[in-house]
């Protein structure tokens, strides 16, 4: 399997505070990785460092076999931030305009959204079943609809990996289920790798094939099935918690 992201001995400090310590793992094509950990464990920080939103304190990140600082083809990486609660409700952007923002990567100035780009936007909205929302303002939509719009924005550049930061936080159980089914389909049918932060450790095993658990440092990274059989994890989490994490994993 081609490697998409390689993290080697990554550390990140905020001032004097150590947020991430000596983390190493790799994301391969076709992976569906559930990234979990307690509050303040550094999950979101890890994603932000991978995306170049925060600087590396120590260690290395390779994206598509290139050092992160030399990587420029960000269209290969789709990102869906944990933003639903902080969207500016005054912002008069239509669904069409928001999704088009996902196509800016790789364009040179003056950046323009071409007719071909509009076709891509139309196609991805159609694929996600939200083409009827195309001209609606984002602020008028429900949380589930907004989440699909942001998924469309992440997908419109045909990325090879999607990175999610707690995508199900603002969703009701029904929307959450359909959202996870959708991204599992993208993972299986299109081979898009998924790296997904979740608090919902009892649920993620239903969809993810790999599990990454951090608590400032890496506690576990590997196949879900191995995690569920691991005596070391059994002693770390306790039998009951390990069972809760694993009970939905096939």
């Amino acid at each position: 399997m081609p490697t998409i992201i390689t993290i080697k001995n990554l550390s990140f400090n905020y001032g004097q505070t150590e947020i991430l310590k000596d983390i190493s793992f790799a994301v391969e094509s076709g992976d569906f990785i559930g990234l979990a950990g307690p509050n303040g464990a550094g999950k979101t920080t890890l994603i932000k460092v991978i995306l170049g939103l925060l600087p590396i304190t120590k260690g290395e990140i390779e994206l598509f076999d290139k050092q992160q600082k030399n990587f420029s083809d960000w269209s290969k990486i789709g990102y869906l931030p944990q933003k639903l609660a902080t969207i500016n409700s005054l912002f008069p952007a239509t669904v069409n305009e928001v999704v088009a923002l996902g196509l800016l990567s790789g364009k040179t100035l003056p950046k323009r959204i071409t007719k071909n780009d509009q076709k891509k936007v139309g196609a991805i909205l159609e694929e996600l079943g939200i083409s009827d929302l195309k001209k609606r303002m984002l602020s008028e939509l429900s949380g589930g609809q907004q989440q699909k719009v942001f998924l469309a924005r992440a997908l419109v550049s045909s990325p090879e990996i999607l990175i999610f930061d707690e995508p199900s936080t603002a969703l009701d159980p029904e929307s959450r289920e359909s959202f996870f089914k959708l991204i599992k389909k993208l993972n299986e049918k299109k081979g898009i790798a998924i790296l997904l932060i979740t608090h919902d450790t009892s649920y993620i095993g239903k969809y993810a094939n790999k599990f990454l658990y951090v608590d400032k440092e890496l506690i576990y990274f590997g196949k879900f099935s191995d995690f569920c059989r691991s005596a070391k994890m059994n002693s770390y989490f306790g039998k009951y918690e390990q069972h809760i994490i694993c009970h939905q994993h096939n």
Binding site: G52, L53, W74, S75, Y79, K83, L101, L104, R112
Partner: peptide, 23 residues
Amino acid sequence: IYFFYWDLFSATFDEEYAKTTGV
């Protein structure tokens, strides 16, 4: 403003996401 229209729009709408698309 015309020249940087999409970059201005993206950075105004969601600065963090804009950075991940190279803005």
